[in-house]
């Protein structure tokens, strides 16, 4: 019926113990090209652990994570060579941190922050790198006149935009985001959500977004995983999970949201 492209990322039975304490247990899911998957749950539910496990930042205790590489097809990200994995992480993948200080180089200009990934894959033409940085500042709706300013002079929302531009400049196919709007004012958050949604749609990006904010999850993600105590208790279409939650915990989560 539908033309089936293979999933971009498959997590199977991903389990992570920290010194015997479970971070996440037996988590399995797939992410298809162009799909945005949200992971929700309260603090300590294991959602960030899952995000780190599937983005090659934290090797799971057991289980596998497979990524459909551009040239060699599906590959276990923890079994490929380290150079291949690191290359993947800085070209085909993006990672947007909650705190932009973790995702940006605070000591160099906005332009250099965006250009870094290009230089890391061999760009050696200053003019072209600068042009790309300029284009991306524009795409994330930042003032291109501030290209040579340090990130430290930007507001939190602008730093977050810069972090997004820095990740997207190498045209990744999947972006991992950890509470991307977590530190922002509500008004700034709305604009950033709109930007993210537009970019994801226009670029056909796949994304995995960890958030504790159900409103963010509703607006950005196609599908949702609800996590509790390290386990996925419910998954499905975002509006299905939020409007017709089945699991007692999902129901509690949804009913706990305060609607203004």
């Amino acid at each position: 019926m539908m033309q089936e492209a293979p999933p971009l990322l498959s997590a199977r039975g991903v389990t992570k113990f920290y010194e015997g304490i479970p971070g996440c247990r037996d988590v399995s899911f797939e992410v298809w090209p162009g799909e945005v998957l949200g992971i929700v749950g309260e603090s300590g539910s294991g959602k960030t652990t899952v995000l780190n496990c599937i983005s090659a930042r934290l090797e799971p205790t057991s289980g596998t994570v497979e990524y459909a590489t551009r040239h060699d097809g599906p590959a276990d990200i923890y079994r490929m060579s380290e150079p291949a994995r690191r290359l993947l992480m800085r070209t085909d993948w993006g990672f947007v941190h909650q705190n932009p200080r973790e995702g940006l180089r605070m000591g160099v200009s906005a332009g250099a922050n965006i250009g870094e990934r290009l230089m890391a894959v061999g760009a050696r033409h200053y003019g072209n790198i600068r042009q790309a940085a300029n284009d991306w500042l524009d795409k994330v709706e930042m003032d291109t006149g501030r290209m040579d300013d340090l990130p430290i002079t930007f507001s939190g929302g602008m730093q977050q935009r810069l972090q997004i531009a820095r990740n997207l400049v190498t045209a990744p196919r999947i972006v991992f985001m950890d509470e991307p709007t977590g530190n922002l004012d509500v008004s700034v958050q709305a604009r950033l959500l709109d930007l993210l949604r537009g970019l994801v749609t226009d670029l056909g990006l796949a994304a995995v977004i960890v958030t504790h904010d159900l409103a963010v999850a509703r607006l950005l993600s196609h599908r949702l995983l609800v996590m509790r105590r390290g386990k996925v208790v419910e998954s499905g279409l975002t509006d299905q999970v939020l409007d017709d939650p089945q699991h007692p915990y999902s129901q509690l989560l949804v009913s706990s949201v305060i609607h203004p």
Partner: peptide, 15 residues
């Protein structure tokens, strides 16, 4: 064709 919305995969439903 036809899709059974009660049983379809989320991506089919979105389509």
């Amino acid at each position: 064709g036809t899709v059974d919305m009660a049983a379809a995969h989320p991506r089919e439903i979105l389509a």
